[in-house]
Design a binder for these strands. Structure first.
Length: 471
RNA sequence: GGCGCGGUAGCCAAGUGGUAAGGCAAGGGUCUGCAAAACCCUUAUUCGUCGGUUCGAUCCCGACCCGCGCCUCCA
């Protein structure tokens, strides 16, 4: 079965085929909605960003090349309000959170998109696009602001599968404190209010509405029709619906072939959001001693279209599962194996690789993919215990782990700063080994205790002493 | 009300018209100077409820109950 995704547009899982034809070798044009940098991102946000990362990695595993653009929204009402309140310029304010966001992404091992595009660096292009929409009669003005006239786009609602035809035109909702002639219309360009910051452009002074930046930057860098447009499920309406309206009126072409959306992360069964105040940032979790890998694993292990209920137990369980995988890798690297090959295990490893691939091809079913890995891990551990894992079984076992880690990327521990150096630890371990050999167990236990107190965990294995830093 | 997602063992979770993957936890065992760690084994006659279709349904159909999200800014 080929790679396939659930497409919000068609409400079906369908084979993925880019505009330029199926892979391998085809470049996939992908646009993902990034953060609004008015605060630290929380792990609910990162659920979606981890999803983008899985999408990237798996497209590449299937032989595709990538041209991936992600935006950073660095201008909106909240940003302006907060920047003014803190007496900072827009740039000074957003730089802080932009940098924090990019740092967090790196910590979570999220691959960097080919291009990260900031809204404020594309203001003239947005103005030009709005101007073009005005020329073609898709807009109207009100007090210097420009609105998109939804009535001009009959397909409006096709993504969110809402039927707007019954809505009464002219009903007024004054949510944005701007005058609209139809509740469904949305702002392309907002005129500055008294004393507000504004850009001077060919369509007059003001600032862009939220939706236009994505359309403009996506089309500028990726062309009129994207292969994949991704985002959190809450963006389906109105954000992505509006993007479609603007973009398709601008180019006359379908804006994206696939629309993929990640479900929410919940806390205590409720959406994690800043307005509810029930959110955690990565910094919060690291402060409680959790590792970046365990956060990454937890967010990746539940398939993206299923709501994920965040708990600390879940995080702990992720950490333990990672440890088990690392232990297995350690055994492969250190165990003394008999020569030869165990054909049964070769078959099992090959099957596990195939299962992993087919699970991921099936709309990124990470839970099923993990099942294949752990099942093989159990077979292999049993064989290792019985001395039936041979040197000839190493390659296939490592191939499976490599495939797993090319997606999950959790096997290598994040380097920790502080504490004993590796050399110091090795010296103490050697001293303990010597004490044990001369049956001075009191001394050996003393050294072990010292190490434990300094956060070093020792494991006596058949193949020598292994140590790791306690997380 | 409209649109959408989900209800599978203590928790997380996959899945198929033919009789329930996997992870964590728990219990048992192996190993070990002791310990820790590691590894192995065991754990759902049952898949929200009630009907229907079928030789047979957790998986198909209908009704209902419950949880969550979007419909206004939001990953």
């Amino acid at each position: 079965m080929p790679l396939r995704f659930y497409n919000t547009l068609t409400q079906q899982v369908q084979p993925f085929e880019p505009l330029d034809g199926p892979g391998p070798g085809t470049t996939v044009r992908m646009y993902t909605c990034g953060p609004t940098v008015y605060d630290f991102a929380h792990i609910g946000n990162f659920r979606t960003f981890v999803f983008y990362d899985l999408l990237r990695r798996w497209l590449r595993a299937d032989g595709y090349k990538l041209d991936h653009v992600m935006n950073i929204t660095d201008v909106d009402d909240k940003i302006i309000r907060n920047a003014v309140a803190q007496g900072k310029s827009l740039g000074e304010y957003t730089d802080i959170y932009t940098k924090a966001f990019l740092d967090d992404c790196a910590t979570l091992r999220l691959e960097r998109p080919e291009r990260i595009a900031r809204a404020t660096e594309h203001i003239p292009q947005m103005a030009a696009a709005i101007h073009k929409l005005e020329e073609h009669g898709f807009t109207y003005r009100s007090d210097g602001s420009v609105y998109f006239r939804i009535g001009k786009f009959p397909e409006y609602g096709k993504l969110s599968h809402n039927d707007f035809s019954g809505m009464v035109s002219g009903a007024r909702v004054d949510v944005d404190e701007y005058e609209k002639s139809d509740a469904r219309d949305f702002a392309l360009w907002k005129a500055p209010k008294e004393g507000e910051f504004a850009w001077d452009t060919e369509i007059g002074p003001g600032r862009p509405g939220w939706h236009i930046e994505c359309s403009v930057m996506a089309i500028q860098y990726l062309g009129s029709t994207l292969d994949i447009h991704a985002g959190g499920i809450d963006l389906v309406f109105p954000h992505h619906e509006n993007e479609i309206a603007q973009s398709e009126c601008l180019t006359g072409k379908p804006f994206s072939r696939f629309w993929v959306h990640s479900e929410f992360l919940l806390v205590d069964g409720q959406k994690m959001s800043k307005s509810l105040g029930n959110f955690y940032t990565l910094r919060d979790l690291f402060g409680r001693g959790f590792t970046p890998e365990s956060v990454r694993y937890l967010l990746a292990s539940v398939p993206y279209r299923k709501g994920l209920n965040f708990t600390f137990d879940g995080l702990k369980s992720a950490q333990t599962a990672i440890e088990r995988l690392r232990n297995f890798k350690f055994r492969l690297d250190s165990a003394k194996l008999p020569e030869g090959v165990n054909e049964t295990l070769i078959t099992q490893a090959t099957a596990a690789v195939a299962e992993f691939r087919s699970a991921m091809d099936d709309d990124l079913n990470t839970a099923e993919a993990l099942g294949a890995v752990f099942e093989f891990l159990r077979h292999a551990n049993t064989a290792l215990d019985a001395g039936e894992f041979h040197t000839g079984n190493l390659d296939s076992a490592r191939r499976l782990l490599a495939l797993f880690d090319s997606v999950f990327d959790v096997l290598n521990p994040t380097a920790q700063t502080g504490g004993l150096s590796e050399e110091e630890v090795e010296q103490l371990i050697a001293a303990r080994a010597a004490a044990k050999k001369s049956r001075d167990f009191a001394r050996a236990d003393q050294i072990r205790k010292e190490l434990t107190e300094k956060g070093i965990v020792l494991e006596d294995t058949k193949d020598g002493v292994r140590w790791k830093r306690k997380s």
